[in-house]
Design a protein around this nucleic acid. Sequence first.
DNA 1: CATATCAGTCAGGGAAACTGACCAGTCGAG
DNA 2: CTCGACTGGTCAGTTTCCCTGACTGATATG
Lengths: 143, 143
Amino acid sequence: MSGPHPGLLMFIGARYVEQRINDAVVAAGFEDLTPAMARAAARLREDGIRVTDIAEQARITKQSASALVDQLERCGYVERVPDPADARARLVVLAPRGRAAQAVARREERAVEREWRRHLGAERMAALQDALVALREVTDPYL
Amino acid sequence: MSGPHPGLLMFIGARYVEQRINDAVVAAGFEDLTPAMARAAARLREDGIRVTDIAEQARITKQSASALVDQLERCGYVERVPDPADARARLVVLAPRGRAAQAVARREERAVEREWRRHLGAERMAALQDALVALREVTDPYL
DNA sequence: CATATCAGTCAGGGAAACTGACCAGTCGAG
DNA sequence: CTCGACTGGTCAGTTTCCCTGACTGATATG
């Protein structure tokens, strides 16, 4: 019919972005940051997040999330601080090193976006963004 | 600026499709087919394919590809037959059970596409497809 | 205050990928 | 035609990532 399935095309695109960002972060000297750690770290907010929430958003068990946070903590990317609102919980917050790595990742993300825009033109890029956002209503149970 | 990065949105969409297809295949009684096996099996062609080529296309090592084909073979989805053109090689071909599973997967794939088209409208769906195909020139080294 | 719920850890296991070393068949150059 | 380089594939061993199940301690609810 109309060529490859959009799902496959999205997979290719998503893999490309992840690879680009990972390469950039590693090249910037953060060599101990694995893709899985990065995926977990991507959920971090300024005001901290609970391990359980990371797990839920990333669709992994809290044990897996906890192990990844362990690694991130050991490598100095994050810290665990007590949650003032709930004595059972602890908040995962970015440490300075994590903040630096995140800046590199965001910069690369923007670079990829610029390249795509240059390749597609502003119009088609906007159409892509629009369609993807709209699709999210169907494909993302978190929203 | 303009909401989530397209790479993330693509990831969400791709994960959704993979999940839907996997669920459908499992529901149809192919419960021993893991996502990794399915990803390898998706590369199969009517006329057979070499393990090395599966590895290259799926971007995994030939050892990993070989292990997945082992599993697929053990579960009756594929067979390995000698390659008439090269005595070193063997061709991986679909067995009847694999053909049946593939039919289910293709049907679900089309169902997802229909749902997306209904949600977006034909026009935006076409724009999405168009942009994704164009992006592939940038993101897919295989083309 | 008793019980159910929730945050998180501990222990153990399995799937899927990797590297490195290796064998056997094929191909091209001398 | 044969010898070295290349290629298809396997074997052995390891790592990463994620899972289930059982558990502790803190909080919330009746």
